[in-house]
């Protein structure tokens, strides 16, 4: 996903340019492994949802979320899996669910909410569902959570 606001590469002739990859630690897993894990999680989430275990499903999908280059397919699978969970949660259950997530998982959830909002019309994204989650998550995790989403170079 292209999120850079500057469209001209002003560093084209700079030999000592700071590369994107130097700004975060790269994922030790290789892309195909990440994709396999994403697909396994999709299955695990389905069975969790069948048992009506929303917290468990969220924790599964938010753990070790794919980031970095060459993992677009895994990222899409994960987003799709997450959307299934978000769409099938009753709005009254959202605050309780979020409170059971760890700070790390809350930060990752916020990343996906923003990713979803940046892709209107993709898959079964529903703006109102995402905004509902966003409101509750901000109430619980604070604006700091949004700042971490914007700052973190490990883009999901």
């Amino acid at each position: 996903m292209d999120i850079n606001f500057r469209k001209i590469d002003i560093d084209a002739y700079d030999e000592d340019v700071l590369q994107e990859s130097e700004l975060y630690e790269s994922d030790p897993r290789n892309p195909s492994q990440v994709l396999n894990e994403a697909k396994q999680k999709q299955t695990a989430v389905r069975s969790s949802l069948a048992r009506n275990d929303i917290v468990g499903a969220l924790k599964t999908v938010l753990q070790d979320a794919p980031y970095g280059p060459h993992t677009d397919e895994a990222k899409n699978v994960t987003l799709q899996t997450l959307l299934t969970i978000l769409n099938s949660t009753k709005s009254t259950e959202i605050p309780g669910t979020i409170k059971q997530l760890s700070p790390d998982e809350q930060d990752t959830l916020m990343k996906y909410l923003y990713k979803g909002m940046a892709m209107p019309g993709w898959g079964d994204i529903s703006g109102s569902v995402l905004l509902g989650w966003h409101e509750k998550l901000t109430e619980i995790a604070g604006t700091g959570c949004i700042v971490r989403t914007m700052t973190d170079r490990r883009i999901v």
Binding site: A141, T143, G144, C145, V147
Partner: peptide, 13 residues
Amino acid sequence: GPVIHNVRIPSLP
């Protein structure tokens, strides 16, 4: 260790 403690705050940086 090194031991690094990361303390997140809910507000702005």
